[in-house]
Structures are given as structure tokens and as C-alpha cells.
Write a protein that binds this DNA or RNA. Sequence first.
DNA 1: CGAGCGATTGAAAAGACTCAACCACCGTGG
DNA 2: CCACGGTGGTTGAGTCTTTTCAATCGCTCG
Lengths: 237, 237
Amino acid sequence: MMQQLQRPYCARCQHRIRSILRDVDDYALENLDSTKACYLYKKGQVIFSEGIPPTGLFCVHKGKVKVYKTGGEGREKIMRLAKNGDVIGYRSLLTGEPSSVSAAALEESVICCIPQETFFKLLRGNGGFSMRIIELLSAELGRAEEEIVHIAQKPVRERLAEALLLLKDTYGTEDGDSSALNVRLSREELAGIVGTAVETLVRALAEFKRQRLISTEKKKIRILDLPRLIEIGNLHD
Amino acid sequence: MMQQLQRPYCARCQHRIRSILRDVDDYALENLDSTKACYLYKKGQVIFSEGIPPTGLFCVHKGKVKVYKTGGEGREKIMRLAKNGDVIGYRSLLTGEPSSVSAAALEESVICCIPQETFFKLLRGNGGFSMRIIELLSAELGRAEEEIVHIAQKPVRERLAEALLLLKDTYGTEDGDSSALNVRLSREELAGIVGTAVETLVRALAEFKRQRLISTEKKKIRILDLPRLIEIGNLHD
DNA sequence: CGAGCGATTGAAAAGACTCAACCACCGTGG
DNA sequence: CCACGGTGGTTGAGTCTTTTCAATCGCTCG
């Protein structure tokens, strides 16, 4: 399915200092490096799927990943976007349930998989690591609860503004064009972030274009009026 | 503001075996009992408020509590319902931020407050306790993500069915009337659980009554057709 | 070149929200 | 004791938002 790669060393990984592995000791790092696996996923490839028991913790070495849930009528809600140094798949690992979400690569991505046993060894052996996990879960829970209120109470237009700001925050802008978001999403994916139907998303995008807040050129989105976008996104907080 | 009570002993608390304190050792329990405080809150009294730095971990000894967020136009979204043995206020404690939610008593409630320092002492000193916190956060995150999809994709009618089932699960039914929910909520609060406007909630309730799925008598809600309610609530999962 | 998918637009319908009025109940103070 | 005011619940009507369905367009890939 996906290509297996030679493992990069966590010990030398540039993302590690900002990741949840930041204060894992050398001994544990060695164990980690010797038990993990590393894969190359092509754009669109599924990393793991809802309903399947998790096999380990996934760590994005390089690339962009969407974490999503598939709702009743097959509509996809994107729960989280992961970038270099982010981990995914930890929640179901911790509850011992089958995964409650799926994950797929938004672009070609290199992703390491830390086996379940290694993960739990880290958790038990290292107080710092379990504290990082707690912080991660707390932050995610906070974000999720925010999103519940927003989806329940804010109109699409404001949620779209928020989504665009999130994309800028998460993936930044292109080298040489600081207004162009550094990620390419289909309209369906964008709708999945906002939590609305594709057609509604397209109309909201068109309105933003008319108002010169953004411009689009295929999947490339440029932010033309950041202050105004922030205003719209945070209007009803 | 609220009445301070003599502290009940955690060591003898009947809820402890099912709570996150279940495997705290005797020594730590003693420290807990000597540093905590315990208060009586009347119906409607606020326990803590959004935006205020947390002072400790709250543990519901007896009573019913709503945890909620206030959205843009002052509309209240209820995020969680707590019962005997449940803890609230842990998330902001863990991230070190001001509280992202408020909490208030749904009925007269006895609630203990474990000071921040005692809480962190438990967290550092006891691997089991931090594991319980991780499980709690993971479960809450799972529930929150479920709710995001539901609010984004399910109509009010189905979310109301879910809410009624949640109330039954959480607080059970009255002694001597196994169809009557053992909790009294205002229509506004019910709307806050479902995530909709009061008028919309009232209409959905009226429809359920017409279809003989439930009956209401003031704030008392009886579930008349549980199987059908389950069907409606889980239709689009 | 044609098939097919993703993006876009239009039109209609459904769902939910708002506003306003009204009712029912409750407790208070005269 | 009763009138009063207030709050919470309910209903109706109209409006706005969002969804749905259908059709079109444009591009890409075989």
C-alpha cells in the first residue's frame, strides 16, 4: 500500500524540540528509534481509519495530514490538521477503543509509526511524557469545545473566516508570497473544516472574493485583508 | 456567597471507587482530606466562571451540575453534565489558562474543592492518578468530537433525542417512576444541551409529545417510547 | 476526443432563528 | 386574600440561512 522508508532518527529530528517527545531521555529515544517504522504516504492516502483498532502513535515527520470523521450521509468533518512534528492517533490508543477518526495525507507525507507498546512504555517510564500527553489532550479538548459553540452559534461566513485563519496559523504562507496559504485543499475539504455543505462553502468563498478579502486561483487561496478577516472570524466570541 | 460545610472524608466516600481518585493511596488521601474545602451550592448558584483563573479541582459530592460556555449573543451552550463523583474544572487547571467554561448547580449540591497544589501533587506523585486524568481527557475529547459532527450534520430533532437519552444515562430515572427523568431543567437549559434556540427546542419537544415519544408535565419529562427515541437519536451515525 | 470529476451557479425547499404576542404560573406586597 | 408584576413557557408569522437538487462548466486524464 504505502512505501516503507528508512527510519529517520528521532534523536536528530528537528521537530522533536517542539513535539511531545521533547523531553524523552536518550535511552528511551534509542528504544523508540529501533522499534518505530516510517512510511511514505502519497497525497490522499489513508493513514488509519475510523472503527479500526489503532496499531500505534503516528508522528508526522514531513507533510500535511487531515484527521476527519465521516458523518451520517457520508459527509466528512475535518477535526484536526497536522503538520511536521505533530502526532495523531493518540486518543483511541489511550482509551483502548477502535479509532474514532480517520486520517489521510493532504500531500505526500513521511510519517513514523510508534508501536503501541513503545508508546505505553514511554507513558509509564517518563513523567514528563505523560505530562506532555495531558497538555496535548487538554489543549485539544479546549479547541473542540470552542468549536462546538462556534458550530452551534456562528454562521458559515464567520466560521469560514476562522478556518482560513486556522490554515494560515497551521501551515503558514508560501515562500515568496506571504499572502498565499501554503496548503491546497479541495472545496470539499474546506467545507469539511468549516462544517457545512460544499455549495454553501463555495458561495461563502465567492462572497469573500467579491469583498476582496481573499482571492482564489484553483486551490491556491490568497489572503488579501487579514485584519478584516480576523474581525469577521472573532466577531461573535 | 455559598455555605461552607464540614468536609466529608474522601476515604469513606461511596463515589470514590468509580471516580478518578479511585487508586490514590491512603497517604495522599489524607493530605487531600486535610487540604480540600467543601461547599453547599443552592440551585442556580455559579461554581466557577469562564475567564477566571481556576483555584482548584471541583468534585461533586452530591448533586447535579452543568458545565457551560456562553456564546456570542449570550446564548448558553451546555458542554457537560456532572453528577455524584464527577470532577469538573480540570482542563483549565492542566493548561494553566483561565477557565474556558462556567459551572453552576442544577439543584442543591455539595461540592468539594481540591486546591491546585494538592491536585498537582497527586498528578506528580501518583502514576495511577495521571493515567486516570489521561483517560478522562481522552473520553471527553472523544465525546466532544462526536458532538461536533452531530451539531454540524444532524437536525435538531435527532439531537434532542440524543439529549434525552444522555439525560437518562447520566441522571437516571425517578424512584417509583422509571420513565420520568431524574432531573429538572428549564427549556433554556435543554436548548443549551441540544445547541439550539429555546423556541426551536420547545417545538421539537411538542412534536415528540404529539408522537407519544415523551410526555412533559412542567419540568418533569417522561420517556414513553425509548426504542423509538434511540432509533431517532442514532439514525445518522 | 470523450468520460468523469470537481467547481460553480441557480432555484426551490427545508430548517432554524427572530420577533412578538400571549399564556400560565408563582410569589410578593398591598 | 387578591391584584400585580415578573418570569418562563408556548405559539404564530415572517425571515434568513443553509441545504438540496439540478444543471452547467472546465479541466484533466485516459
